[in-house]
Simulated assay, not measured.
Amino acid sequence: MRKIIHVDMDAFYASVEQRDDPALRGKPLAVGGSAKRGVVAAASYEARNFGVKSAMPGVTARRRCPELLFVKPRFEVYRAVSRQLHAIFARYTDLIEPLSLDEAYLDVTADIAGVGSATAIAEAIRRDIRKELRLTASAGVSYNKFIAKVASDQNKPDGVFVVRPGDGADFVATLPARRFYGVGPKTAERMSALGIETGADIRGQPLEFLERHFGKSAHYLYHASRGQDDRAVKSDRERKSIGGERTYTEDLQADQALRDALEHIIDIVWERIDRNNARGRTVTLKVKYADFQQITRARSVSPPVDTREDFEQLSRALLEALLPVAKGVRLLGLTLSSLEPAQERETVGESGVAESGPVQESLAF
């Protein structure tokens, strides 16, 4: 029985900006974008109260919140804080699987710090974050990754939610279907048309029904709806690609709006590439139009892309080849693939010990 914690920082970029500039505290804040153009990268909780969200055009955000303040992102600062965050994690476990700068899975089955329980470890981590980084984090504690991640959202911001093994299936049964991985708005609509609104509704369907309607996602939905997820926390995983995408609340069509949106995605994806010390030969641009038609455009180069300038040039060239667009764009994404094996690079971006080996002690929840 694993003991897994999912830690997720609260409004990370915005909280760092508010921490470092007292004049921003308690005010609605958007990181990235502007009142005239660009896209919001992150929003403070004060801004979220007005309906401002990440990936929202700056014009829309200002319309929803006239008092909204915009600041430019400082990714070098966020990366530095993330390194401090991971140093805190490492006090309590060697098994850390980063998902982004501000969230990670931790396997604390072996109580290497002698804290006594998974819940106590989650609280200790949150105390360390508050004391040393002057930021807040939320955590989900459970016996598998799926439930731990969902649980970390239950008491946000600045909260902990624990789902013990005997409670997992009942907890999942109450979840809206849209809380399951991969269930976006269109899939949620399809589920609703089939009478599926909750985890209990998914669990009530035979596997054959799920396969017929949801294809490759069927097995995941079948097991997750029963509170089952056998994936291990992998601190030494080898990535096949690194990317990111954003869906926009309002379709983008103007050339400059699309260029601004692409710059935001370049920032996000390059941060991930840089953190993983990755080098790859193929850059792919993904575009989904307002009518849900989806296209990709890719370019491969040799030697591999290993500087931000190279990544920017390739990404921009792929977009420019599509401009002007004849219809609105609802999603943009970038991916770097054909990555070199870790051993061919100077250092490995995500290091850690393998999961195998004896467990020191069975840790309580």
Rank of each mutant, 00 (worst) to 15 (best):
I5G: 10
I5P: 08
D10R: 11
F12D: 05
V16Y: 03
E17C: 09
D21C: 06
A23L: 12
R25S: 07
G26I: 00
K27A: 09
P28G: 04
A35M: 07
A35I: 00
K36Q: 14
R37V: 03
G38R: 11
G38Q: 05
Y45H: 06
Y45S: 01
E46M: 03
A47L: 02
K53Q: 14
G58K: 11
R64D: 07
L69I: 05
L69C: 10
P73F: 03
Y78P: 02
A80L: 05
R83M: 00
Q84F: 04
H86G: 08
H86K: 15
F89G: 08
R91A: 08
Y92H: 14
T93Q: 13
E97H: 14
P98L: 08
P98H: 13
E103Y: 01
A110Q: 12
I112S: 12
I112A: 13
G114T: 07
V115S: 10
E123H: 14
R127G: 08
D128Q: 15
E132M: 09
L133N: 06
L133I: 00
S138P: 03
S142Q: 12
A148D: 09
A151K: 11
F161L: 04
V162T: 09
P165G: 10
D167E: 15
D170A: 15
V183C: 06
P185I: 08
T187G: 04
T187K: 14
R190L: 04
R190W: 02
G195E: 12
I196F: 01
E197G: 09
G199I: 02
R203K: 15
P206Q: 14
L207V: 04
L210Y: 06
E211V: 00
H219A: 08
L221M: 09
H223M: 13
G227E: 05
D230G: 10
K234P: 05
I242H: 09
T249K: 13
D251R: 10
L252N: 11
Q253N: 13
D255F: 01
D255P: 02
D255M: 00
Q256T: 09
A257T: 06
A261D: 02
L262Q: 07
I266Q: 12
I268F: 05
R275V: 01
T282Y: 06
L285C: 03
Q293K: 13
I295V: 07
T296N: 13
A298V: 01
R299Q: 14
S302C: 02
P304L: 04
T307R: 13
R308I: 01
L314S: 02
S315N: 04
L318F: 03
A321E: 12
P324I: 06
P324V: 02
V325P: 06
A326M: 09
V329I: 05
R330M: 05
L332S: 06
G333E: 04
L336S: 01
S338L: 03
L339Y: 00
E340N: 12
T347L: 05
E350T: 00
S351M: 12
V353W: 11
A354C: 11
A354R: 14
Q360A: 15
E361C: 13
E361A: 15
L363M: 10
A364T: 12
